[in-house]
Design a protein around this nucleic acid. Structure first.
Length: 422
RNA sequence: GUGGUUGUAGCUCAGUUGGUUAGAGCGUUGGACUGUGGCUCCAAAGGUCGGGGGUUCGAGUCCCCUCAGCCACCCCA
């Protein structure tokens, strides 16, 4: 079909079953967020560009090439948010949330934007569900946040997950580590691929997760972050691991787990699944103890994660055979001829009782209306024709058993109450 | 940004070495069944063959460009 307009690249319309599945995933996650004591926060879809440049880091891929940045009519440079943490931290400061009892535990659900080439599990507009716990350095909160992530996937019935765990250390240990790593890589520079030669200068940690074989063997004996943790970082990580052990949460220690934002410190984690193809991270996050200060606040420690909603839906479709979401209605009001007006009234009264009800709006025959009822998965059909009306009655058909009974119009609410326990 | 691959009905796909009015299944609507769903049968509606240009007497089919989907790299949710 010739269409004048199509969705922009990397975006999509979400309708019917897909939209219902998305709602189901979001409802499940939000229920868990609230069960863990997190409260909602809604921030704007766009922010001042500098917020992300400063927050995520000037040298990151996101800031370098993936932001949707535009100038508004006042000449301000604005950017559609590529992630949720920096905006939440900004809002934390701007709304004086530091004066609340700490930590402030927040959750969000919203779309993010990154200008990337679309592929499986990656879109230019995508949805994230995330939490941020701001205002404590307690290792127990690390454990809680990771536990929350794990419990959400359990609740959704997604199994065969890998929880990858690492610590980036504090700025102190990170500095000595990255110096050592830089020195090591400088000696190996001719064995590295073109990209990694650049990485060795800009962001040496990145060399760890390069897939080129030459690079992998070149870094086989590279220094590991774990050898550079200071005592505090070491103790913190030990506590987190211990708490996860106590909770029966298994994890994979992954010193190569390097996340894409500059603000991460200490604990970082990611949940992966084999079933999704190249984009295998369902969710991930970490501690960011310096970000609040970076934005002008007092020294404040914090941690959070984000879940990719579309990826979770994909995973559930693959791993969870009976993952389906469909709507069904309680009563379809089928009417014939003049009785349509009476039907419309009854429809309204049923809905007022909290019963989901619908009728025909395409002037279908009774047969057509029955077919439609079937498609809408109505549990009962109310049939209203001239004959029934003359008797002051209506017919109720149970769509499962096929049984039909005739009841008085004045008894409809009584019937509905008994039938649907409303 | 780079590479591979695919674009034919709402969906999934046939379409011969280029040759009349481009097909099927599912879905939609109607009928068989004058007022009763699911099953069956029948029928109808629905196509600038992604878009543009070229080769040719003739292009869904061959060539070029472009757009989009999918997959991978980079990176991440």
């Amino acid at each position: 079909m010739f269409l004048k307009f199509k969705v922009p690249r990397g975006t999509s319309d979400v309708v019917f079953e897909k939209a219902e599945k998305k709602q189901l995933v979001e409802d499940t996650a939000i229920t868990m967020f609230e069960r863990f004591g997190y409260r909602p926060i809604i921030t704007p879809t766009f922010e001042h560009t500098e917020l992300f440049q400063r927050g995520i880091g000037e040298n990151t891929d996101i800031v370098q090439k993936e932001m949707y940045t535009f100038k508004d009519k006042g000449g301000r440079s604005l950017t559609l948010r590529p992630e949720g943490t920096a905006p939440v931290v900004r809002a934390y400061l701007e709304n004086g949330l530091a004066s609340r009892s700490l930590p402030v535990k927040l959750y969000y659900c919203g779309q993010m934007f990154r200008y990337e080439r679309p592929q499986a599990g990656r879109y230019r507009e995508f949805w994230q569900l995330g939490v941020e716990a701001i205002g404590t350095k307690d290792a127990f909160i690390d454990a809680e946040v990771i536990l929350l992530l794990v419990r959400i996937f359990e609740e959704m019935g997604i199994k065969d997950l890998e929880l990858h765990l690492n610590s980036m250390g504090c700025p102190g240990c990170r500095k000595s580590f990255s110096e050592a790593l830089r020195k090591y890589l400088a000696d190996k520079i001719e064995h590295l691929c073109e990209d990694c030669q650049k990485r060795a200068r800009m962001n040496p940690l990145r060399v760890f997760d390069c897939k080129v074989r030459g690079c992998q063997s070149a870094i086989k004996d590279a220094p590991l972050i774990s050898n550079f943790w200071c005592e505090d970082c070491c103790n913190h990580f030990e506590t987190v691991k211990g708490l996860l052990n106590d909770m029966g949460v298994s994890y994979i220690l992954n010193p190569a787990l390097v996340r894409g934002f500059d603000y991460y410190t200490k604990t970082t984690f990611e949940v992966r699944t084999e079933s999704l193809g190249a984009q295998n991270a369902l969710g991930g996050g970490g501690r960011y103890d310096g970000l609040v200060e970076e934005f002008g606040g007092q020294s404040t420690q914090a941690i959070g994660f984000a879940i990719g909603t579309e990826r979770v839906i994909m995973a559930m479709e693959i791993l969870n055979e009976n993952f389906s979401a469909g709507s069904k209605i309680d009563v379809f009001v089928a009417s014939i001829g003049e009785a349509r007006k009476n039907g419309f009234k009854i429809l309204d009264s049923l809905r007022k009782m909290g019963i989901s009800a619908d009728m025909d709006y395409a002037e279908r025959s009774l047969k057509g209306q029955m077919k439609l009822s079937d498609k809408l998965k109505a549990s009962h059909v109310m049939i209203l024709g001239p004959d029934e009306l003359k008797r002051g009655n209506c017919l109720i058909r149970d769509m499962k058993s096929g049984e039909q009974t005739e009841i008085k119009l004045t008894d409809i609410s009584l019937w509905a109450k008994n039938c649907f326990k409303k």
